[in-house]
């Protein structure tokens, strides 16, 4: 059998085989292996919970695939709340005819990513829909984790705080865009899709006073910073030259007329930290491969309240705007 058939979702023998051979094989742990209707677990203290559905097209991209993304994304959402990823649920919706080998690859990436987060899948579900009723494969994951660093909030940023990014920006967005719809651009660029908990853990252990932290996914850096500026009633001021952007991302932006600040990141976060901790935070992150280009990129003041502002190299200022809906190449 090379492809997923409708009967794989029917609950019968084929379903059992699929679960055993693919899912249990990869995700095996004591709780999951019991295959109960619901999985019991212990929780202590304040918890956080998040859910997200993944429909990325293309399913496989350079630097990851939908499976890796489904674990990174959900664990990163927990990490961005100061919560240590713990238990995950996952639901697959698979289009009839999807390749079993491809499914195995996806599941393998998920299990590798779970290990990086020290998290386990304790319950799951699989549905197969007739050809044409879904686009290849969708994955939903829900995660719970214990909050180990409390008090993060997008409304708690104050004047004098510093803005720090964990790595160069825009790689996921740029990469996914060029892989899609008739753009025909070749680039060695990879998605930055990666788990952020290890970095957050480092920062917490280093005693960094984090005010707000967010992975710059849809809408990129500019969406996050605009939201913070509004919710905290401050002016966030970035120095354009300090923002780390890879050369390949710049090239794609030149070709298509994009701004790197609008492109999604899947393994890069931005945070507001206490002024005195900014350099220490950068140093801590640079010691880890996922934070190799970490940098202080700006400050918080009150010049233009509720706005995110970019300072150009010539000392002029402009609004860091929020991207309008779907990104389209600026050709004319």
């Amino acid at each position: 059998m090379k492809e997923i058939l409708l009967e794989h979702g029917g609950g019968g023998e084929s379903t059992g085989k699929l679960i055993n051979d693919i899912f249990l094989e990869a995700f095996s742990n004591e709780t999951l292996n019991k295959l109960e209707d619901a999985s019991p677990f212990f929780a202590d203290g304040k918890m956080a919970m998040t859910t997200d559905s993944y429909t990325v097209n293309p399913v496989f991209f350079s630097g990851g695939n939908i499976g890796k993304l489904s674990i990174c994304g959900t664990c990163n959402d927990l990490a961005m709340m100061g919560a240590k990823p713990g238990y995950i649920s996952c639901g697959f919706i698979i289009e009839e005819g999807f390749g079993i080998d491809e499914l195995k690859t996806i599941v393998k990436s998920m299990s590798e990513e779970l290990k990086k987060n020290n998290a386990v899948i304790i319950t799951g579900d699989t549905k197969v829909v007739p050809r044409g009723n879904a686009d290849k494969i969708y994955i939903n994951t829900t995660g719970v984790g214990e909050i180990v660093y409390d008090g993060l909030s997008s409304s708690g940023i104050g004047e004098g705080d510093m803005i720090v990014v964990s790595n160069s920006i825009g790689e996921h967005g740029a990469h996914i865009f060029v892989m899609r719809e008739g753009i025909n651009i070749k680039s060695d660029l990879k998605s930055d899709c990666r788990s952020l908990w290890p970095l957050v853990d480092l920062l917490i252990k280093a005693g960094i006073r984090i005010k707000a932290i967010r992975d710059a996914t849809r809408g990129g850096l500019s969406a996050v910073l605009n939201e913070w500026a509004r919710q905290s009633n401050v002016c966030i001021k970035l120095k354009e030259e300090l923002i780390p952007v890879k050369r390949e991302v710049k090239g794609i932006c030149e070709l298509l007329g994009f701004e790197p600040y609008h492109l999604a990141c899947e393994g890069t976060f931005v945070m507001a930290v206490d002024r005195e901790d900014a350099d220490k935070a950068v140093e801590a992150m640079r010691s880890h491969e996922y934070g190799s280009n970490a940098a202080v990129i700006g400050t918080v003041d009150s010049e233009f309240i509720s706005k995110a502002v970019l300072e150009t190299g010539i000392g002029t200022k402009r609004i860091l705007d929020i991207p309008a809906g779907v990104l389209l190449p600026r050709i004319c």
Binding site: K307, V309, K317, G325, R330
Partner: peptide, 24 residues
């Protein structure tokens, strides 16, 4: 997002450019 006239339509229209970069 909801342009009424020509200059707000594309990123390069003058109203859109003002809206994006010069609003403050």
């Amino acid at each position: 997002g909801k342009p009424l006239g020509a200059c707000m339509v594309s990123d390069e229209g003058s109203c859109a450019a003002y809206y994006r970069y010069g609003r403050f």
